[in-house]
Design a protein around this nucleic acid. Structure first.
Lengths: 192, 192
DNA sequence: GATTGTATCTACCGATTGGTAAAATGCAAG
DNA sequence: CTTGCATTTTACCAATCGGTAGATACAATC
């Protein structure tokens, strides 16, 4: 009995993720996927019978597991909340390659048409909820009441997400790294 | 002598902008443009000889003029800085349709390939600079020294941009409106 | 009224798109 | 060795892609 429930190898999904990150959903083509994975088109369809949409959902599911399940894991541990936030921040810096990677939730929610759009948006929305929720929980630990904690979580995710947009648009990752540094104060409510 | 130096009508560019907003650069197709503008393909190429790239640059230039030149105009006026920020915030709410519109700088920087990518990124980068600069100037007015003012401008733009990503991903514009409300404190350094 | 420049049209091009059929292979269990 | 399943392969499809040629319409100018 293996530990992986999905048979598709991690490396394949990571390659697909890379294509989606730099080209968005609408800009990603099957040809780009074949080049990135080394797999020919029918082989990709063997693993993802639903085509591009199936690949996007698999990539999103994988990213969610990574981000919420591993990167933000310190937030669910015990110990000083601020210290745990800093540990999570360090992992996030790694996860987003120091701010040089486009967030998949951003990239994938641009360019899908019709039914695909709704399906993807629903998955993205779920991932955002988990992301914000993880932040909100630790904000609550730091003394915020429920609604305020949720607000802090949202604002922190917004600034994080926006700093990644900024990094892609300006080439500077300064705002991203600063956001990571500010994270304990952002969630703790002690900012500025 | 007319006031517009570019002959292409505003409505055409606004239609193109709408397509780019919802489909990104890579996902936008000539067919979508013809549907949105009512113009057939050769007519579009008559106005934009450089094709999709030319359209993207025209849209970006138009958006820059709108955002920096008009929406943020109150920031360059005289009077109480905080009040001017609030006036600009009200206009931004309108500009982004209360948070329901995707930012073109985000949408356009996803999906372009090769040379196009560099050209677009350069235009986006310039627009971000103007955006941040406008914020930084008023932050300086509120007592921040140069580097701190720039930081506040960057962080504010990041949170704004991120809250739009969040709105598109979750369907809720709460974070966007909250960012707009927080803007005076964000730039003034009195936050939380 | 002929000329000129702008704008739009119909019709078409080769290349690439997402997607599939069916044969050929690899490979593990019996 | 054989059976059976998973995987990859070659070869192909219709539809759509970005882009263009060339004829036509429409003003304004001479």
């Amino acid at each position: 009995m293996k530990e992986t429930m999905k048979s598709t190898e991690r490396s394949v999904i990571e390659s697909l993720a890379g294509v989606f990150q730099t080209h968005g959903f609408g800009g990603a083509t099957l040809t780009l996927f074949t080049q990135a994975t080394g797999l020919k088109r029918p082989s990709l369809y063997h693993r993802f019978p639903d085509g591009k949409l199936g690949m996007a959902l698999a990539v999103l599911e994988f990213a969610k597991q990574q981000l919420v399940g591993e990167v933000l894991a310190p937030l669910r541990e015990s110990g000083d909340p601020r210290e745990r936030i800093q540990r999570a921040a360090r992992r996030m810096a790694d996860f987003y390659d120091g701010g040089n990677d486009t967030c998949l939730m951003d990239a994938l929610s641009v360019g899908a048409k019709g039914t695909d759009r709704e399906t993807i948006d629903s998955a993205v929305s779920e991932m955002f909820s988990d992301f914000i929720g993880a932040f909100a929980r630790v904000a609550a630990e730091l003394g915020a009441e429920e609604s305020e904690a949720f607000r802090r979580g949202e604002d922190a995710v917004a600034r994080l997400e926006g700093s990644l947009v900024l990094a892609r648009g300006t080439g500077s990752t300064a705002a991203f790294n600063r956001t990571l540094d500010d994270l304990p104060d952002l969630l703790g409510g002690k900012h500025r």
